[in-house]
Computed example of a mutant assay.
Amino acid sequence: MKKAIFLLSLFFVSSAHAIAPADLAKAKNCFACHATDKKLIGPSYKDVAAKYKGDASAVGKLADKIKKGGSGAWGTMPMPPNAVSEAEAKDLAKWVLSIK
């Protein structure tokens, strides 16, 4: 019986995986305003990554901005708050910062 429970728990743990950040960005409609390599309504992800390169607090700053929105960092157009969890916001921020 213990072995069966153990095997079932392994199945559920291995089949439950997080959505990839690029897919999450698509699902949350981030690409309506941002592109990887060119400015749309908001800055390109490459430009964001370049601006925050070497900033140890960048993940937290970007995750906060993703979650709460903001304005002024890239012009006058405000970024609206996004309906994401804290973990999703951090995953998105890490992904954006990884784009070269």
Rank of each mutant, 00 (worst) to 15 (best):
L7Q: 10
D37A: 15
K67P: 01
W95N: 00
G69D: 07
P80C: 08
G70I: 07
K26D: 09
A63Y: 02
E86R: 02
A22S: 12
M77K: 11
F12Q: 03
L24V: 07
L40N: 09
P81Y: 01
G60F: 08
K90P: 00
M1I: 05
G70W: 01
I5P: 03
V48P: 09
I41K: 14
K53R: 10
G70F: 03
D47M: 12
P21G: 12
P80V: 08
A87Q: 14
I19F: 06
A27S: 12
I5L: 15
H34V: 08
G75D: 00
F31G: 08
K46H: 09
D37V: 05
K46V: 13
S44V: 10
A83V: 03
K46N: 13
S85H: 06
M77A: 09
A20C: 03
L97E: 08
G42N: 02
D91Q: 13
K94H: 06
Y45W: 15
G69C: 05
A32D: 15
N29R: 12
L8H: 05
V48H: 07
N82T: 04
S57E: 12
A20P: 06
M79W: 00
V48I: 15
K65H: 04
G60W: 14
V84Y: 01
H17N: 12
D55S: 07
Y45E: 10
S15N: 11
V96I: 14
A25K: 07
A63S: 08
G54D: 03
I66L: 09
W74T: 00
I41T: 15
K39C: 06
A89S: 06
K65I: 05
K90Q: 04
L10Q: 07
P21R: 08
D91H: 03
F6S: 12
K26A: 11
K61G: 00
A22F: 09
P80I: 04
H34T: 07
A16C: 14
P80T: 05
D37Q: 11
W95T: 00
D91L: 06
E88K: 04
K65R: 10
K67R: 13
P43Y: 08
F31Q: 13
A83I: 01
K53V: 02
G69W: 08
G54W: 02
D91A: 15
A20D: 15
D64M: 06
P21L: 08
A35L: 05
